[in-house]
Amino acid sequence: MTEYKLVVVGAGGVGKSALTIQLIQNHFVDEYDPTIEDSYRKQVVIDGETCLLDILDTAGQEEYSAMRDQYMRTGEGFLCVFAINNTKSFEDIHHYREQIKRVKDSEDVPMVLVGNKCDLPSRTVDTKQAQDLARSYGIPFIETSAKTRQGVDDAFYTLVREIRKHKEKMSKDGKKKKKKSKTKCVIM
């Protein structure tokens, strides 16, 4: 069974824990209790493949930012979460993405942009803004509501699919490099 290491990042209060708990335990946590770091595991079937999701729910508070490099190193894919009623959390996505790329030393890291709290009427981040940002990053965008469960499975499952595509691409690139290195030079 394939294991996928997913990391949920975003500013404090955007609903990272609520999304994760909704996926794992099928219930909505409405009281806000700032996370330092929590880890969850769940076995699911995605596109006919049974897999184990190892999900790291991270601290959004700035005082825990020193811990970010460590979990970013171990993560295979990242859910970059903002709240649709919090423009600052949307603007912060850029910083999370840049930090992930720096730590992973790669421009090509599996990510999904997630606009959470889409059940709320007080939207300050337009869907088109988020779609445009995701398009500019070359990553999928999904709106979710941890409260109603809308888009929750889709967000995590899409990230797994992005990781699969990335692994497939990397193995193809690896095979191309191996083929090239088999060419021999004969000096007579």
Rank of each mutant, 00 (worst) to 15 (best):
T2N: 12
Y4E: 07
Y4A: 05
L6T: 04
V7F: 15
V7E: 04
V8S: 05
V9Q: 08
G10Y: 02
G12M: 04
G13L: 13
V14K: 12
G15S: 10
G15Y: 07
G15N: 05
K16T: 03
K16L: 00
S17W: 00
S17C: 02
I21N: 08
L23S: 15
I24G: 06
I24P: 00
Q25P: 00
N26C: 15
H27E: 06
H27P: 00
F28N: 00
F28G: 00
F28T: 00
D30Y: 06
D30M: 11
D30R: 06
E31C: 05
Y32L: 01
Y32G: 00
D33S: 06
E37K: 02
D38A: 01
D38L: 00
S39L: 11
S39E: 04
S39R: 00
Y40F: 09
K42C: 11
K42W: 01
Q43T: 02
V45S: 04
V45H: 05
V45M: 07
I46D: 06
I46E: 09
D47A: 05
G48L: 05
G48V: 08
G48P: 13
G48C: 05
E49M: 13
E49W: 05
T50V: 14
C51R: 03
L52K: 08
L52W: 04
L52Q: 04
I55E: 00
I55G: 00
I55S: 04
I55W: 00
L56T: 01
D57R: 00
T58Q: 01
G60I: 15
Q61C: 15
Q61M: 14
E62L: 15
E63P: 04
E63M: 01
E63G: 04
Y64C: 15
Y64R: 00
S65W: 03
S65K: 02
A66C: 14
M67A: 00
M67H: 00
R68G: 15
R68C: 15
Q70S: 01
Y71H: 15
R73A: 11
R73G: 05
R73L: 06
T74H: 15
G75L: 07
G75T: 04
E76I: 08
F78Y: 06
L79W: 03
L79V: 12
C80I: 13
V81L: 12
V81F: 15
V81R: 01
F82T: 06
A83C: 11
A83Y: 02
I84L: 13
T87S: 10
I93T: 14
H95R: 13
R97G: 08
I100G: 01
V103A: 04
K104A: 14
D108S: 07
V109T: 10
P110T: 07
M111D: 04
M111C: 08
L113P: 03
L113Q: 03
V114L: 11
V114T: 02
G115R: 04
K117M: 15
K117C: 14
C118F: 08
L120M: 10
L120P: 11
P121E: 14
P121M: 12
S122M: 13
R123L: 09
V125M: 10
D126S: 10
D126I: 07
T127G: 10
T127I: 10
K128E: 11
K128L: 08
Q129D: 15
A130L: 10
D132L: 08
L133T: 06
L133P: 06
R135Y: 15
S136V: 10
Y137K: 08
I139M: 07
I139T: 06
I142V: 06
E143D: 09
A146I: 01
A146S: 01
K147N: 07
R149S: 09
G151C: 05
G151K: 05
V152L: 13
V152Y: 06
V152S: 06
F156S: 07
L159V: 12
L159C: 09
V160Y: 09
V160S: 11
E162M: 05
R164T: 13
R164F: 12
H166C: 07
K172C: 12
K172L: 07
D173L: 13
D173G: 12
K175W: 07
K176F: 07
K176C: 10
K177P: 15
K177R: 08
K177C: 12
K178P: 14
K178N: 09
K178G: 13
K180E: 13
K184T: 09
C185L: 03
I187G: 15
